[in-house]
Amino acid sequence: MEALLQPVAQFFGPIWPLVWTLVKIFAIIAPLMLCVAYLTLAERKVIGYMQVRIGPNRVGPKGLLQPIADGLKLLFKEIIVPSGANKGLYLLGPVFALAPVLVAWSVVPFGDGMVLADINAGLLFLLAVTSLEVYGVIIAGWASNSKYPFLGAMRASAQMVSYEVAMGFALICVLLISASLNLNDIVNAQGQGRFHDMGLSFLSWNWLPLLPMFVIFVVSGIAETNRAPFDVVEGESEIVAGHMVEYSGMSFALFFLGEYAAMILVSAMASILFLGGWLSPVGFLPDGFHWMALKTASILFLFLWARATFPRFRYDHIMRLGWKVFIPITLVWVIVVAVWMMTPLSIWN
């Protein structure tokens, strides 16, 4: 690989690092966008089968070209700006909804060392960048100059800010036991211990000692991405479609891209932090990116499953679950883990 790239690097000279980084970014974003497109199809198919329907099956073989058709349709639609809307911010809203999610992928490792930016404080960076997602919602809701989007934005952002706290505490537990903020190190720290030596690596991953945190992280992830059953932002029966009501065409599509990319991001985070990332679940199979993809896909399936199963939460129940149930549990569990690490029973030495 190095030898092959040598002549190209010489051709570009001093701007080679820039070019190479751009190539890497493209190699992450392009498959991600494809995954987003096919996640929408997977969602419709999975929910369809769960409700004893077939789902989309008309465009292309077995409906496989449906996302392409949807994308083209949205691309050719007119973008309507409501009168009295704050035009600049109105058009910036969808960008703010998508951009932080894409930025967050820069620190996500896909394999041992396979990462765009291997930074020290990777976990903190992820937390900070995902906390910016809320701006897309707020700006879109306010700039539309319309009542329903504004109400939807208020709900959604209050919900996202609340669940971020619980998510943060769950992450504190993870960084306590792996003693590092670097995502690469966090994964590698899960590949050791008694069970790993026995060849049963999947029992040495973080999900087992931190089981309550794993559950809270996944549920908070669903709430954070505003997915059903926490999708009061869309709440068709109450407030039409939340902050996206006034958007059409590609500006609407950007919100959707952002939402699905955020879903994939949360699933990837859960598989890195709790399910051992690219590590193989058993000793006799090799580690690799395919494990990471499999784990991410399983958690994504859980997202879709939850959407097909549960009715929408009432708003005050969502807030109660976040503040009165999750945050106290996580606070106590942080102390439990910290004390556990100091006792002779600690399993993380």
């Binding site: 903190l124 937390l127 906390s131 910016l132 809320v134 707020i138 952002s157 800010v161």
Partner: peptide
């Protein structure tokens, strides 16, 4: 000072300014 930088974004941009 990456910890301070990221915490600034996390706390002030992600939470305080939202409120």
């Amino acid at each position: 000072a990456e910890f301070l930088a990221i915490t600034l974004v996390l706390v002030y941009v992600g939470a305080v300014m939202v409120l």
